[in-house]
Design a protein around this nucleic acid. Structure first.
Length: 566
RNA sequence: CGGAGUUUAGCGCAGUCCGGUAGCGCGCUUGGUUUGGGACCAAGAGGCCACAGGUUCGAAUCCUGUAACUCCGACCA
């Protein structure tokens, strides 16, 4: 490709809307342009890289038996109503206004299951892996960070269909392995975490994560190999020990001590002797949850424990109406209204606890949960914090921010049951198809790659994703026939040798070409200028290391071959 | 959806407090000089100052409303 006629608008200055490196560089190096919030145009240079990602995805999913489909983005809403996901998705789903009954698909479980129901009838038709690479539409409340969170984005989504649970395990593991290969091939450093299935439903899910400040997910990881999304992470933090005491409950005055920290400070208490009460409205019903000390309640855990998305912390006025006190003096005993009480596992059967007296400025001590309260159940409600011991061997947990690149789910039969996609087993008995679903955000792969591979001058491409292998720079090409001829010859020979070459034949000063070359970051720069050419020499610069080599013109093909063989 | 901010030439910004009809740098066009790390000189082109309404003799500037975009939070298969 001759750069003089290639549309690759580079920017010297950083557009002010871009905050993170990958977004800035994707704009500056001419990969993307924003059309509206969360909506982007892919320019030719960026689209070439994107297609390289897609090809890697195709190759690896094909290898595990995937068959590529193209499902429509425009879907009849009825199918989505049958699975209850119109409601579950809520505002995230785009609805077509001037054609009632059509929606834009935010994912494709329903459509896949619809076709499976039509044509898969016997266990002998299975297993199947169906996939596509296609645009998804989600009305994100707050698009951000360039292509990392958009309203329209490309996803590789595959769906496995099996006749038994062992088959699902195999399909799931195959995807797990394929995903590892995909991200390895893209040279992306990633880790895998156990995750929450959210509104997807299903038994098990794992996320492929890239550690990054720009990430929106938080993960707990440790050196022993423990890794989980903070939404589901657990630690080996010790339980509160039950003491051999049976002291009566005593009320005591706690003026100006509204937080756990203030109580600890004012009364010289141990954090483990305190129980904090949190009131949530779950399915329009207030419940009280007891947490130990300063432990933080995890709303994702709460959501899966009560199997609902309908919950919120109680408002200040509700707190007073329910308990008789304001925040800071709330506890499980002497509540104004009778409500259900749950507690975190760390508090199981604990005694000798201090908690609010439901009277402003007062607390109770010597509370025995077994003796004095009616706890409906103990669950793991807490959010893991940094430096807690992990559950593998007690290694300290690190809490890091991460970008979710891929997510794999064991769906089970949620969709096949809802849409009645059944097959006959060996005994002629009807059973729902057992499904898995597996997604990768294609743009995110590129954004994460750039987050991990750039310097102050620009992007640093490595071969698998690089839009071109070689950047051929002709310096002062319009002033020297020798330079021109050498460039033309190299352009032809390199292309013949199978390399993808971007040939900078523009009438620009050398400095402009050097800076653009570093900005767009192709792996190898071959620099043809009079300075070296008078001695028959060509300069080769490796973008990643900055190393410069001088070679004879005749050796360039060999040198290039050598470099890309590695 | 809550909070904050921004909107003036293709890009980055000043001008707004204190009203008088728009400016800087980069980029672009033409000519000349330069030419191995984003050149220099000269002459140019390019703006309904986000939109709508109001105040005023006069509004980029003051007032009211709306929209878009960005950030923080909430939400997020």
């Amino acid at each position: 490709m001759r750069q003089s006629s290639f549309f690759i608008p580079t920017l010297k200055e950083v557009p002010n809307e871009a905050q993170i490196p990958s977004h800035q560089l994707m704009l500056r190096a001419g990969l993307i342009r924003q059309l509206a919030s969360g909506i982007f145009t892919w320019l030719p240079f960026g689209y070439i890289a994107l297609k390289k990602v897609m090809n890697i995805l195709r190759e690896e999913i094909d290898k595990i038996g995937g068959q590529e489909f193209l499902y429509p983005a425009l879907n009849p809403i009825e199918i989505w109503e049958e699975t209850g996901r119109v409601e579950a998705m809520g505002d995230v789903m785009f609805h077509i206004k001037n054609r009632e009954g059509l929606v834009l698909a935010p994912t494709h479980e329903e459509i896949v299951t619809y076709h499976a129901k039509q044509h898969l009838q016997s266990y002998r038709d299975l297993p199947q892996i169906w996939y596509q690479i296609q645009n998804k539409f989600r009305n994100e409340a707050r698009p951000k960070s360039g292509v990392l969170r958009g309203r329209q984005f490309i996803m590789k989504d595959s769906y496995s269909m099996d006749s038994n649970w062992e088959g699902l395990d195999v399909s799931y593991q195959n995807h797990f392995d394929a995903y590892c290969k995909i991200f390895d091939r893209c040279n992306i450093k990633f880790f895998v975490v156990g995750a929450s299935s959210g509104s997807m439903g299903g038994k098990k899910s794992q996320e492929f994560m890239v550690e990054a400040d720009a990430g929106e997910d938080v993960c707990a990881i440790s050196d022993s190999g423990y890794s989980a999304n903070i939404e589901v992470a657990v630690s080996a933090k010790e339980k509160i020990v039950r003491l051999a005491l049976n002291d009566e409950i005593v009320e005591f005055e706690t003026p100006n001590s509204k937080t756990i920290d203030e109580l600890i400070k004012c009364f010289n208490l141990n954090e483990s002797s305190l129980a904090k009460s949190v009131i949530y409205i779950v399915n329009d019903k207030p419940i009280l949850i007891l947490m130990s000390g300063n432990d933080e309640l995890n709303e994702t855990k709460l959501s899966s424990i009560f199997e609902t998305n309908s919950f919120r912390p109680a408002e200040a006025f509700e707190l007073f109406n329910i308990t008789g006190a304001n925040a800071g003096s709330i506890g499980p005993i002497n509540l104004k209204q009778k409500i259900e009480i749950y507690a975190d596992l760390r508090l199981e059967d604990a005694n000798n606890l201090i908690s609010g007296a439901n009277k402003d400025g007062y607390h109770f001590k010597n509370i025995d949960l077994r003796r004095d309260t009616q706890i409906i159940a103990y669950y793991d409600f807490r959010t893991v914090k940094a430096n807690e011991p992990d559950i593998i061997n007690g290694s300290p947990i690190r809490v890091v921010k991460a970008i979710e690149l891929g997510h794999i789910f064991k769906l089970g039969t949620k969709y096949s049951e809802a849409l009645k996609a059944n097959i006959l087993d060996e005994n002629g008995k009807e059973n729902p198809i057992i499904m898995g679903s597996y997604g990768i955000g294609v743009e995110r792969v590129l954004a994460c790659y750039i987050e991990q591979n750039h310097d102050e001058n620009g992007i640093i491409w490595q071969t698998p994703l690089a839009p071109f292998h070689v950047h051929l720079l002709g310096l002062m090409i319009e002033k020297s026939d020798e330079v021109k001829n050498a460039c033309e010859r190299l352009y032809l020979d390199l292309s013949k040798a199978g390399f993808e070459v971007l040939f900078d034949d523009r009438i620009e000063r050398p400095g402009v070409k050097f800076n653009d070359a570093d900005l767009i970051g192709l792996p190898l720069q071959i620099i043809v200028g009079n300075k070296n050419l008078v001695d028959g020499n060509i300069e080769v610069k490796i973008r990643k290391t900055g190393e410069r080599q001088i070679h004879k013109l005749d050796e360039i093909i060999i040198v290039t071959n050598e470099y890309f063989k590695l």
